[in-house]
Design a protein around this nucleic acid. Structure first.
Length: 610
DNA sequence: ACAAGTATAAAGGCATGCAT
DNA sequence: ATGCATGCCTTTATACTTGT
């Protein structure tokens, strides 16, 4: 029976019979429903349970299953090539013509093409397998549920894989993990960066970068490190922290640029450090970003000094508020409501940097970090005297100063909302649950502080010039006291248990997160082409409701596949749906050599026409 | 023989509802 | 509102099957 299903060709001119994910249960099963695999502990061979019971496996077909691999066809093919390359160091990409072997072979130049690259002549098949896996992965990622939920909605996968059924959940996970282990996540991260760069160039102009952190809850019965999770009332829960950097070109959409993985309770600076640790990425950010904005968590002196040392054009806001009426010096500019804006050198942050001692060096001082006193409620006029302290890595233009509040507040639409949108479609899912025993972030911090303290002590000892004997004796006693302090702290540190677990970025989840960034950006750039404001700014969650999560009927023909998408019941919503469909068709997507055509089904009973 | 893919038992994550 | 117990569902680990 299973064999019959396997040998059946999907090629035939047929219509797959997908099932509405919501209405699921009662509909007619698709041909591959005959799979022997039954979840929920009921073996197929056990006739004691009715087949309609809870555990029966019923694939549903969501538009995303087909749309994503088509939309990302180009980058995925490229990635598959890079990933199939034999053990290259992850930082090095393959040759620029690497994507040619996966294209059709019938072209007359095909032979020369194959001979021209004998190195990869053996890998095309391997690359195309990886390409298919990646396609299946992206087709499943933006869903509720994990690996199993993904499989359940991937009923339409055979349309483009040509297989008899969707990939088994365990198969895809296995491959995702394998790819991740061999440096796949870094390759996808590179693809995301390339994608963002390309988009930024197309928008012509510099970008604004944003970085924020979010804690991802991890429910576990094993001993694990915990941290306060904002979305759960700041309760202490086992967690992983992620840093997310978003970039927005002028007039463009918010594009996800980088994601990093940290221990629970990591400060924002950790994310920034990882972001700038990579030379090319740091170079790109430095040359392309006008500002790099982050939240209060990174407004401490240590972080800002770190940023200043790297000439990052940072913009953040300090914790404490003040009153603009307290400041006497001449304001640099005025807000649109005629309130004064004061700017002064940020002495605390600038301390220790080459100072403007002489007139010649005053230029250096002008480029350094500054503090901006900006009215907290400029629109309320003189009635409100509260002011915020913004801190910038380098002086702002007068135009930027005048509307500094608005500039900073772009953090919400550009960063927070992008993050929320991603989370709404499953970005914060734990797709990999491995724990490694390690130290907590708190212990790490204590260690670095202790190291600094010991360094300071040894510096002090070295710098000590003995004068009189009593003074020397006194100094020796002082040093001994300090040394003892260090040792005691060290002992305390070692006494803390270090056998708890934390999730580490070794598994498939990093790969999947980066793939989701790639997806997010691809769709954001597509939506940008719409004339409808609602569509241009549509969130991923909404997009899922209107399009990606919809079920459809497919009509397979020789050269093209038509997806008849299930319409939403509400007429005004359907207008948006139509616009989405229009955009998709305009993009003229294709999959496995077949062009994709999207159509909206009739709202009522006419669906029988197929 | 090998790798891709699948099945299945056991472990344990996560949502839910209930008691407090 | 908070914390805990419960149980369904997902993930893990690994053995097994199938195709080349």
């Amino acid at each position: 029976m299973d064999k019959g299903a396997r040998t059946r060709r999907v090629e035939a001119e047929c219509c797959v019979d997908p099932v509405d994910p919501e209405a699921g249960r009662g509909a007619t099963p698709a041909p591959w429903t005959t799979s022997q695999r039954q979840r929920g502990g009921f073996a197929h061979s056990t006739p004691f349970f009715s087949s309609g019971a809870r555990g029966s496996f019923q694939p549903a077909a969501a538009v995303g299953t087909v749309l994503w691999p088509a939309l990302l066809a180009e980058p995925l093919a490229q990635l598959a090539n890079e990933m199939s390359a034999p053990r290259a160091p992850p930082s090095e990409a393959t040759s620029p013509s690497a994507s040619s072997p996966t294209t059709l072979v019938s072209a007359p130049s095909g032979a020369t093409c194959l001979e021209a690259s004998p190195v990869s002549s053996r890998s095309p098949s391997k690359a195309s397998v990886i390409e298919e896996h990646l396609g299946a992965l992206v087709g499943r990622l933006m869903n509720s549920g994990g690996w199993v939920g993904g499989e359940r909605r991937a009923g339409a996968e055979p349309i483009w894989t040509g297989r008899a059924r969707p990939y088994d959940e365990s198969t895809l996970r296995k491959h995702a993990r394998y790819l991740a282990r061999s440096g796949g996540a870094a390759l996808v991260a590179r693809a995301v960066e390339a994608q963002v760069h390309q988009a930024a160039v197309a928008c012509g102009g510099k970008v604004i970068a944003y970085t924020d952190m979010f804690g991802q809850v991890y429910w576990t019965k094993k001993p694990a490190y915990a941290a306060p999770i904002g979305s759960r009332g700041n309760r202490l829960l086992a967690a992983t922290y992620f840093g997310l950097t978003v970039v927005r070109p002028r007039g463009g959409p918010a594009l996800a640029y980088h994601v990093s993985w940290h221990k629970p309770a990591s400060p924002l600076q950790d994310a920034l450090e990882v972001l700038y640790a990579d030379k090319p990425r740091a170079g790109w950010l430095r040359s392309q970003s006008r500002h790099h904005i982050w939240a209060r968590g990174g407004s401490g002196v240590a972080t800002l000094r770190w940023a200043a040392a790297r000439a990052i054009p940072s913009l953040t806001v300090s914790r404490g508020s003040t009153h603009w009426t307290r400041y006497r010096r001449a304001p640099k500019v005025h807000t649109r409501s005629r309130l004064p804006v004061f700017v002064r050198r940020d002495r605390k942050v600038a301390r220790g940097k080459p100072h403007h001692g002489k007139a010649m060096q005053s230029k250096v001082g002008e480029e350094g970090p500054e503090e901006v006193i900006f009215p907290a409620h400029p629109d309320k006029g003189r009635g409100s005297t509260k002011a915020l302290r913004y801190r910038t890595g380098r002086p702002l233009t007068k135009a930027a100063l005048r509307k500094l509040d608005r500039l900073y507040k772009t953090r919400w639409p550009s960063n927070e909302n992008a993050l929320k949108a991603l989370v709404a479609v499953g970005f914060d899912r734990n797709l990999d649950r491995g724990l490694v025993t390690t130290t907590s972030r708190g212990i790490d911090g204590a260690r670095t502080r202790l190291q600094a303290r010991e360094q300071a002590l040894s510096d002090e000892i070295e710098a000590f010039v003995p004068t009189t004997l009593p003074q020397t004796m006194q100094a020796i006693r002082r040093f001994a006291r300090k040394k003892r302090g260090c040792d005691e702290q060290q002992a305390r540190r070692l006494k803390a248990p270090q056998d708890k677990g934390a999730r580490m970025p070794t598994g498939a989840e990093g790969l999947c997160k980066n793939l989701m960034l790639l997806m997010h950006n691809a769709i954001a750039l597509l939506l940008l082409r719409s004339r409808l404001h609602q569509v241009r700014t549509m969130s991923l969650g909404r997009l899922h409701e209107l399009l990606l999560g919809r079920s459809f009927l497919a009509c397979l023909e020789e050269r093209q596949t038509t997806l008849w998408i299930e319409p939403v019941p509400c007429a005004s919503e359907r207008l948006l749906q139509q616009e989405l469909v229009r955009l998709l068709n305009e993009a003229s997507l294709s999959l496995k050599g077949r062009s994709l055509l999207f159509k909206l089904r009739e709202p009522h009973g006419e669906t029988k026409a197929l």
